[in-house]
Simulated assay, not measured.
Amino acid sequence: MSDRPATPDLEACRTLLRGGSLSFHAASLLLPARIRNPATALYAFCRVADDEVDEGADKDAAVERLAHRLDRAYAGQPQNHPVDRAFADMIATHAIPRTLPDALIEGLAWDAAGRRHDTIAEARAYAARVAGAVGAMMTLIMGRRDAESLAAACDLGIAMQFTNIARDVGEDARQGRLYLPLDWLGEAGIDPGDFLGDPRFSPALARVVARLLDEAERFYERAGSGISRLPLDCQPGIQAARMIYRAIGRTLARDGYDSIAARARVSGRRKLGLAALALARTGLPALRLPPLPCAETRFLIDAAAVPVREPIGPGARVIMLIDRLERTDRIIRRPEHPLSNLGSRLSGDFACPP
């Protein structure tokens, strides 16, 4: 799938995503076609899976149907639907272990059961399934199967999911859903039942939302160093996704953490500015070493990673960093590097946050 032109099935997937996954659509424009096509198949399946559980009258039956669709996709006999066919092609082409989409379906099953999270660790376990697993699959699509790259991708998934939770507190509550850690709510003096019965903003709720965004920031930082491990032409798209979602949290912070009255958004102009900044950061080396997997994502990394045969000591890492700095200098001067023609590709005066 990766090197072939878009098929009618992929075009159907693209149309599906164009209607609602605006942040993915914006970031995907910076991905090369060899990555954008399988990524489109992946996100279309995620969208269909989420909608089936979210909108279905019988949520348990919806989860069972999704598991059956996975069975057929992995057997090479996908359901007769463009998304299923494109997804089956993608998992076969990129050797996606079944553990990863199974984890996604498990997270959706938790949603179907109305499961709440007593602690931030439980919230991380949920985010690992519904978002970290997707990040791991994207990393495999981009041709990286080492534990450090996968760990960083899972961290980015957790960060983005925590941003979603913080942004959607009011919308979720009005539908009877609550994803904030219950122990944090208790410490803030917020009764979950009372809050769901009458979702209102308060300084106490602001503190809980701010706390969750602080946790998201920690994972955005952890994920940042992994982007430089990706293929050069993949870095702008992933960096843009990271920056756009991070900007949602910062917009919410500027609004006083009130996600009850309104849903924080990032304007199209700002997204374009962040995309330009993502291009500018392409090829730059990471000064921090990628993190080890957190406990909640380790099962994903264990399922997908191919071990590095020779351990790398501290001295070798320093040499590799110096070499990377020198190579980055040479890379930026190449005609094919995104920065070589940045001026002709982007125009306007973008006000980008630091």
Rank of each mutant, 00 (worst) to 15 (best):
V306N: 00
A153S: 14
L230P: 03
I91K: 07
H81I: 07
L31Q: 12
G189I: 01
A153E: 01
A275D: 02
L42F: 06
L108P: 02
Q175N: 13
R144Q: 11
D255I: 06
I322N: 00
G20C: 08
G135C: 05
A286G: 14
L287M: 12
C352W: 12
R269A: 12
D60R: 15
I91M: 04
A92Q: 13
I105P: 01
T40I: 08
S340P: 04
R265T: 13
L104Q: 00
S21Q: 11
R174G: 00
A103G: 08
F24P: 09
C352S: 12
L284F: 10
P354Q: 12
I331P: 01
L17Y: 06
P192I: 03
C294E: 15
M320W: 11
Q77H: 14
A280S: 13
W110C: 11
A173N: 02
T163A: 15
Y126G: 04
S2R: 14
T163P: 08
Y245V: 06
P311K: 05
L180A: 01
V209G: 06
A159Y: 04
Y126N: 07
L289R: 15
A67W: 10
A206V: 06
R200K: 10
L31A: 15
D9M: 06
S21V: 08
A12W: 06
S228F: 05
I301D: 02
L70E: 04
I96E: 00
D172E: 03
R200P: 00
K271N: 01
S23V: 14
P231V: 03
L321C: 01
I190D: 00
V266T: 02
A41M: 08
D3P: 14
R36K: 13
R115K: 15
L180K: 06
Y220L: 07
V134D: 00
R229Q: 11
L150M: 02
